[in-house]
Amino acid sequence: MAQSDPDEVQRQQEIRRRNIARKRGREQSRTRTPEALQGRKHVDVQTERYLEELSDVIVAKDIECQTDSFLDRPASPLFIPAKSGKDVETQIEEGELFDFNTEVQPVLEVLVGKILEQSLWEVMEEEELACLRTQQRVFEELRNNELAEVMRLQEQERRHREEKERRMAQQKEVLKKEKEVAEKIAVRAYTQQYLSGLLPAVFTSLTSQGYFYDPVQNDIETNFIPWLMAEVNNSLERRYAARNLLDTIIQDVAQKRLEMFTETQ
């Protein structure tokens, strides 16, 4: 038995550790994954950069190599080393290099996996679209109900506002009328209080000045009494004239009788 290469053993152990760590990371990510939403479900999909076979995972490793430095100089002559060794050839029989049944299996697995994955995506997309349509329909119903409720509330608010404004106008009108009535009552009370002592004085002054009189008394004072006084004066003047005339006649008669008496003696 040939002794195993320590580098190969170390490489295999590193690959095993990486696979174990990757499995643990997947398990932890799966345990941390929340529950799917309504109408959805979790499906394992490939998220690596390159496609991989579904059944057999081939371990790959990137190795770098450094080319010769003189090859990057185009001006220098191309160095071709001298041929050494012997030329040999290998005969490959038919079927040894490529077996269709064996080589096509990974391709078929990839194609089938992609088709299944695409089919699952399409089914999930249809389910998600149906769920979205249902949610949209429910949302539209809720939105229509909310719009109707908003319109009802706006109309109710408008009616309340109009009723409030109308009642405020009525209250202002009532307060205005009450104020006017109170002012009228105050003015009437003040007028009555002011005129309570003024009216008797005014009536007394007007009565004394002759603005208020008895028609009969006024007629007697203005018409009858002056006429009566004039008639009395006329009568007295006629009587006085008659008396004067009678006195003159008596004096003349007495004078004549005196003269006659003196002549007779």
Rank of each mutant, 00 (worst) to 15 (best):
E162R: 07
K176C: 05
I185G: 02
E155H: 06
F139V: 05
R166M: 00
L153P: 00
A186E: 15
A148E: 09
V181R: 10
E140W: 05
E165Q: 10
R143Q: 05
E173Q: 14
A189S: 09
E149N: 10
V174D: 00
K184N: 11
A148R: 09
Q170V: 04
E162F: 02
E140I: 03
E165F: 02
N145V: 05
M168T: 14
R158V: 09
A182N: 07
K179C: 08
A189Q: 11
L147W: 01
E157K: 11
E146I: 10
E149I: 12
N144E: 12
K179W: 03
E183K: 01
R158M: 14
K176G: 10
M151Q: 15
E163S: 11
R167P: 00
V187Y: 13
E141F: 00
R152H: 06
E155A: 06
N144R: 12
L175T: 06
Q154E: 15
V181F: 11
E173W: 05
K177H: 07
Y190K: 15
E140S: 13
E149W: 11
V150D: 05
K179N: 11
M151C: 10
E178L: 13
E178R: 14
E183Q: 01
R188P: 02
R167S: 09
K172H: 06
N144D: 13
E141Y: 01
R161C: 01
